[in-house]
Design a protein around this nucleic acid. Structure first.
Lengths: 251, 251
DNA sequence: ATACAAAATGACGTTACGTAAGTTTCAAGT
DNA sequence: ACTTGAAACTTACGTAACGTCATTTTGTAT
């Protein structure tokens, strides 16, 4: 015969909770003292552990009732619960993506103004839906593979991080002008990266920039929305870099 | 001016919910008719979409209040929420594991008798014990403070992003060897960056390496975990780069 | 017998709404 | 102007799983 406090200590569950479990008749004390103090036995302790175990698996108390009382259908319950857990994971992954997307946006822009949020909203609203439709419509399969490896700024790998870092720095340096040294060094690194990642296929890179230019399109692919002005500035910087390169090699 | 029903149709949110949002003063109608019918404007629709967006990310309504009303600290909120989401994912993964374990047990045994459940309980108890021990071991307050005060790469600017991206890529390319082209290009970029950002002293770089070298520390803070092997490899790559530079300039 | 800890009961608070029940308002048709 | 049916309104209870008081009893040691 164990008192409620001791059960509480043994299992880490609160006294209130134990009383609640009796209230909903999930765990009933073996008996009570004259004065009404609850007394539990070994059996009850074991049952409580089972309850906690199942609670950890995300079962609701009512489901636990059924699972522990008579012979219930464990198989379908487990299947159910597993499906639920997997679904929740999907949601959380989705949330994580959007959250890191926002974080990155914040890092690049320095603030989250309203229009940016609106863009993200639209982006995430029909994300899964349009992504797939767009994929079939616009890209061949191998091209799609490339898109996947492109700087999709919602992703979390080092490569994306560097792309984001470079883009963000470019944005910060807009006031310096497209021909400044720091800007040009960044451009150089970007070109280096892109030729490294997409060695033989510059056609695709061009396509890529086309996509990004029409920001409505880039929304659909899940790329980070970049505004017109910035894209033009980047293009200008690229052009400057290329003309300098030409001069450099012809001289 | 839009009626409540139309807002409901447009956003898919229930009428009851809209009334509730007014009750907690999260979304207040632009005005009301004589009879008290709610009327919303464009502004309110936009705000509602923002609300739903944030709700999807798992924010509570009260937090959304704060986020949307005055200028609030998005950065820490996002960080918080992301941490929460990651934690939840951990839990769910754990649950998934145990659930599939049970499913398999059920498939093999044909039934879940008591002893089997008890075994699973003990098993999962030990796991959580391990986790707790782990946590206690990992977190010590003063260490946390110390690292926080240092210039760490958790900062949210594009610059840090690029640094992290570069380091991450280096790690991914370890198998290529320190002398490979892609690695050396990254090294070059890092040197370029450091001389650009800290022209006359390398204090920052050194400090960074100090932090990172105590990899146990950097684990604790959630910085990119860098182990010994990796650090040596990076140092080697730097050396190769420098010797090549020397040869290049001396020839 | 008294003091003090531990236990008991009761009731309200929490989150984000769903779901009635009963009343009032709006817009259209006669 | 009057009726009527749909839509909107308010009020209030229910949900899940307890936490947190406040107040009263019981158990136990001295």
């Amino acid at each position: 015969m164990i008192t409620i406090k001791e059960i509480s200590k043994l299992t880490g569950i609160s006294v209130r909770t134990l009383r609640y479990y009796e209230e909903i008749r999930l765990l009933i004390p073996l008996n009570k003292t004259e004065g009404g103090h609850r007394l539990y036995g070994e059996e009850e302790l074991k049952r409580l552990q089972q309850i906690l175990f199942l609670k950890n698996l995300g079962f609701k108390l009512k489901e636990i009732q059924r699972l522990l009382n008579d012979t219930w259908d464990w198989s379908t319950s487990l299947e159910h619960q597993l499906a639920f857990v997997l679904e929740e994971q999907e949601k959380l992954k989705q949330m994580e993506n959007t959250l890191t997307g926002l974080k990155n946006a914040l890092a690049i822009e320095g603030e989250l103004n309203e229009t940016l949020i609106q863009k993200m909203i639209k982006l995430s609203n029909r994300e899964s839906e349009k992504k797939q439709a767009f994929r079939k419509q616009m890209f061949s399969n191998d091209e799609w593979q490339l898109v996947k490896s492109l700087p999709n700024l919602n992703r979390n790998d080092p490569n994306s991080l560097e792309w984001m870092g470079l883009l963000g720095q470019l944005k910060q340096l807009m006031s310096n002008g497209a021909e400044s040294d720091s800007v040009q060094r960044i451009i150089k690194r970007m070109i280096e990266k892109s030729t490294e990642e997409y060695p033989d296929n510059e056609v695709f890179l061009e396509k890529m920039w086309d996509i990004r230019k029409s920001s409505s399109l880039s929304d659909k692919v899940g790329l980070y929305p970049l505004d017109e002005e910035f894209l033009n500035y980047v293009e200008q910087a690229f052009n400057i870099y290329e003309t300098r390169e030409l001069r450099g090699t012809s001289e």
